[in-house]
Design a protein around this nucleic acid. Structure first.
Lengths: 149, 149
DNA sequence: ATCGCTATTGCGAGTAGGCCGCAATTGTCG
DNA sequence: CGACAATTGCGGCCTACTCGCAATAGCGAT
């Protein structure tokens, strides 16, 4: 196949992400359990822009009624430590979880509650200015709040 | 007195703020109670950069042991509606309350927990860009989070 | 295939931060 | 002073997690 005709690198499929994550767990001395696989599957299913832990739990319990919330929280925590997933706080209410793909800057409206993405280049401009002037590196762990149009 | 010798407008004193706030309550059909006065006094005492509702409650209860948290929350809520005070969320943990003086952009470090102020002009640059491009008006209701130096 | 070790899970209780209903109290105004 | 409605104290409730503990189940070794 000619190089110029080669398609762009395919994004990892959901199941690739899952296998890689479970391998990572094992490398760190953890165990690859069916519970963890199910949580990852549900998270892959949920896709962007992310789900709350309780929504994930409800979704999973449709198929696996014995799942408890604490298990979900602990699985999510573990995968986050491994750098596979992350969570962000969207104003009031529960955090949302998603696979780590691209860094993301959420804007959430404190009035209507809807959220959207900010243009990363705009936010990163502020970010680099803060870094230069006061050594503070913004993360997107909390959404930027305000009022939408 | 000659105009050029006139001192700059004095910042409002704490007790002025309190009287103005209580007048505002009454204009809206509310009541100027000693409870509300005490809450305002404690808030003025606390000063910048703000206090949590529970710290305020603890402080007040040293002098007035019967105060309950719910009363504090309701007073704060009322004064916020009137535009006299405001609260902001500093990452995890309780909100902080303060008199409204200048708009303020908090930076809080998700690692060490310390908070500082961002240069307003930097943040307002982002704010106006977001407003122009997507009609979103940032507020400082949630702090900007990241890592400090 | 089975054993033993220990990571993980289910269960249920606990926690922080805040909100709510209701009866008793207390400003306000006539 | 009296009536009325706003406010307060009390206590319980709520959401979003977090934790301790005993039972379960991966995983490497046999």
């Amino acid at each position: 196949m000619d190089p110029v005709d080669r398609p762009p690198p395919a994004p990892r499929t959901g199941s690739q992400v899952i296998e890689l994550a479970l391998e990572a767990v094992r490398r760190e001395g953890g165990r690859s359990t069916t519970t963890r696989r199910i949580v990852l599957e549900a998270l892959v299913d949920a896709g962007e822009p992310g789900v709350t832990a309780e929504d994930l739990a409800d979704h999973i319990r449709e198929q696996h009624p014995t799942f408890t919330s604490s298990t979900i929280y602990r699985c999510l925590e573990r995968f986050e430590e491994l750098g596979v997933i992350s969570h962000a706080h969207m104003g009031h209410g529960p955090a949302v979880w998603r696979l780590i793909d691209q860094p993301r800057w959420y804007l959430v409206c404190t009035s209507c509650g809807k959220s959207m993405d900010a243009d990363p280049t705009l936010v990163e401009r502020l970010s680099s200015q803060l870094l230069r002037t006061v050594g503070f590196r913004l993360d997107g762990h909390f959404a930027l709040t305000g009022r939408c149009a």
